[in-house]
Design a protein around this nucleic acid. Structure first.
Lengths: 224, 224
DNA sequence: ATAATAAGTGTAAAAAATACACATAGGAGG
DNA sequence: CCTCCTATGTGTATTTTTTACACTTATTAT
């Protein structure tokens, strides 16, 4: 059975990932520079066309790997974007994902078959992007802000463990908001996201901070 | 520019809406019975193929209208579903929406070009559906449960106004959970979703309940 | 030894959530 | 018209959670 109807011929799906990192209190997103039409020379979020033999998530992972060399990041779907004119080539619907990773732990592929550059860009210094990627990014940032509450999504940013003061700085960077040290510690610990590793940070010229790890599974919370 | 690559030829997008109602404490979802292949004779959620000249949301509205006659429901996107084999015909990605409406206020189109029946079915009595619609519905129900917290999504279920006891019954039906009358009232009112209409319910054989209306816009809440 | 730095902890006060009981408006029935 | 019945509406004391806030501790540098 083949679809003949002009009304829905020639459609495709984009899988797009807004991959974030936090470097010294600055939230950055991974952008790539295109070396093909459309949007030749424009910066965009990582992503591309979904293949027929892969799920949405598999496609998002493949694109991330092809265009940046990055693998092994947990990603989370945030929304589908379907403005009629979002691609100048043909009718494309984009399914957007977010992820967060420690940029120091990946070797960024600066050039690939379809990209001429790749870089981590502070989210408040993002230029005009190709397609509707500014809109996608804005939404992705909002979702990231929601997602870090009572979740272990930051595990992939700190795979080796995290101290509570470091974690606080990360929350403050992402949420653009300051917290009281003592109350932040109490709140985070009350979420039961972290487990004690009984190891301590070293060489800092002050009292060493205790290192925690994010748990794999976290507890559900009641909504009402 | 035409896409030639076999890897992503012949793809399409479904727009699917899980439309809910609540009747006497029972949460129901609108299902339609197909009269074409694939899944001839199966029940499915309302939806169909997205056209090239419409956005995702427009497509969801058009499908809802074509297949059930229903218009003017606010809908909210919940997720895209992209299992490779979710459609037996060709590669289709589904974008799912939820909405809620008073079933008594709509005249359901029992038959249309592509459907031989349509009905409201209690969500715990839903049969095996065509495509991956059971999976979509399960997710949609979870999203509905999240969505009614601190939101005015139930406005479309009670367009003419709502008493607090009625609202409590609705929350209890959707969340499968009982609340203390006095505390429920306090909580709902503290969310500032409702405005007093200074009118009262009549003819009930007891003290008449005050009628409220959902506000158009509701306040944001802090996450942390 | 001492100073400097950031980590770690406790507690009192305020706010929010919970548990719980009585008063009220209207209809029905004698 | 008086009483009963039913479900609505409200207040308050108690408990729990959140907030505000200050001192002690472990380490490095001098």
């Amino acid at each position: 059975m083949e679809v003949k109807n002009k009304l829905y011929q020639n459609q495709g799906i984009h899988v797009i990932t807004a991959l974030f990192t936090v470097e010294q209190g600055v939230v950055k997103v991974l952008l790539i520079k295109r070396k093909n039409e459309p949007f030749f020379g424009s910066w965009v979020l990582t992503g591309g066309a979904l293949y027929n033999n892969e799920s949405l998530e598999e496609g998002a992972y493949r694109e991330l790997k092809e265009k940046t060399g990055i693998t092994n990041v947990p990603i989370k779907q945030v929304k589908a974007f379907g403005r009629v004119d979002r691609s100048p080539v043909m009718r494309m619907v984009a399914v957007a994902y977010i992820g967060i990773i420690d940029s120091k732990r990946v070797r960024l592929l600066k050039e690939s078959r379809n990209t001429q550059d790749a870089d981590w860009v502070p989210i408040d210094q993002v230029p005009k992007l190709g397609y509707d990627h500014n809109e996608i990014l804005d939404y992705a940032v909002e979702e990231l802000r929601k997602e870090i509450i009572h979740s272990n999504i930051l595990k992939s940013l700190f795979p080796d463990g995290i101290t509570i003061p470091e974690l606080q700085k990360t929350y403050e960077a992402i949420l653009k908001k300051k917290f009281d040290r003592r109350n932040f510690r109490k709140k985070i610990l009350s979420w039961n996201l972290l487990e004690d590793t009984n190891t301590y940070q070293k060489f800092e010229g002050n009292k060493p901070a205790k290192i925690y790890k994010f748990k794999e599974k976290i507890e559900e919370i009641d909504m009402i």
